[in-house]
């Protein structure tokens, strides 16, 4: 746990924070407007907690105490209420993180295709770069392009460790990441679905737009040997 974050045991000595009064907290105009628009979508304003926190996180990079205070001031709820929400959800950050996020899926289907090695290589590749937040994630709902990652919200796959340098170059340069590998361009796998040929992206396999199955070729003994001692 980073000392900068706040998702730690409660300090019982501290008086509880109240709903900040509107004059007390400066809220950027755009953020205020966005939160208010979300609140108008629901019969109960508290329903806007998730979209409001997500908006504040986009503004501040994480759910910092300042971000929480701003949301609390606009939504008229206590900071503690928002902290209870933020600490529950994987996408809301309770400590400062890099500007870019790389969620590497390490759930079952991706693991069967080498996701754990991919994650380890990703982590090595960004070691010391505070701007890129690489983390393991549960099934992202794209097991058809396993192993895959969500890079600043864009799904790419199938990935191998050889793709990492190019992918990180794209991220750091603010370019579209591995455009030919993005999920957005993948056709459905079902060969009976499309009655006519629709334009197929060059990166896709002949008939199915599928990931060709490539499994790690390492022999079992080496694989075992490299396993972390416990």
């Amino acid at each position: 746990m980073s000392p900068l974050g706040w998702d730690t045991a409660a300090d019982l000595e501290k008086p509880p924070a109240e709903i900040p009064s509107p004059g007390e907290v400066d809220v950027p105009e755009g953020l205020r407007a966005e939160i208010e628009a979300h609140m108008a979508n629901y019969p109960d304003r508290r329903s806007a907690a998730l979209p409001a926190l997500a908006a504040a996180q986009r503004e501040h990079g994480w759910c910092s105490p300042q971000a929480i205070a701003q949301v609390a001031a606009v939504m008229r709820v206590t900071p503690a209420y928002l902290e209870s929400v933020a600490s529950f959800y994987d996408m809301l950050e309770t400590e400062p993180v890099g500007r870019h996020s790389v969620y590497v899926c390490t759930n079952i289907s991706c693991s069967l295709r080498g996701a754990d090695a991919l994650l380890a290589d990703f982590q090595r590749a960004v070691d010391g770069d505070p701007e890129v937040n690489v983390r393991a994630f549960e099934c992202l709902g794209a097991c058809d392009i396993a192993p895959m990652a969500s890079v600043d919200g864009v799904y790419v796959g199938p990935l191998s460790s050889q793709d990492i340098p190019a992918l990180l170059d794209d991220v750091r340069a603010g370019r579209a990441v591995l455009p030919e590998r993005q999920l957005a361009r993948r056709l459905v796998a079902d060969p009976h679905a499309n009655s006519t040929e629709f334009p197929q992206h060059p990166a896709q396999g002949a008939a199915h737009g599928g990931a060709n199955l490539e499994l790690p070729t390492e022999d079992p003994a080496t694989a075992r040997g490299r396993r972390e001692p416990r």
Partner: peptide, 18 residues
């Protein structure tokens, strides 16, 4: 001993965030 799927990569599971 079968090839292990986590094999080469036990490290992934030990890594922060996993």
């Amino acid at each position: 001993d079968p090839r292990t799927m986590l094999g080469a990569t036990g490290a992934g599971d030990q890594a922060p965030g996993a």
